[in-house]
């Protein structure tokens, strides 16, 4: 039962003060969750606080490496649309 922060983290600090277990570390090059301390907020909060405030899709994953905020869930941009726009920009 533990969450992890991956490299798409933008180091915005939003999650750090919210963690009830003090498990979030301002590590380099991106933030990290101390696995031993993480409880996924069970019993403390209605939902994992880091994943609730994180602005970056995919940056926080569970033990199965599944993103708590999957593509499109935070920005509202459909992933296929984003992919098409990126191809278009690259082709300019």
């Amino acid at each position: 039962m533990t969450l992890a922060i991956i490299e798409s983290c933008v180091n915005c600090w939003a999650c750090e003060p919210l963690c009830p277990n003090g498990a979030i570390v301002a590590a380099e090059p991106f933030f990290a969750i101390e696995a031993a301390k993480c409880t996924e907020c069970l019993g403390d909060r209605p939902a994992p606080q880091c994943a609730e405030i994180c602005p970056v899709e995919g940056a926080i994953v569970n033990e199965l490496d599944e993103p708590l905020n999957p593509p499109g869930s935070l920005t509202g941009i459909p992933p296929e649309r984003w992919a098409a726009v990126r191809r278009e920009i690259a082709a300019r």
Binding site: R45, E52, T75
Partner: peptide, 9 residues
């Protein structure tokens, strides 16, 4: 699309 409010998105 969202706000963070009282511990919830």
């Amino acid at each position: 699309p969202w706000i963070f409010w009282q511990g919830r998105r």
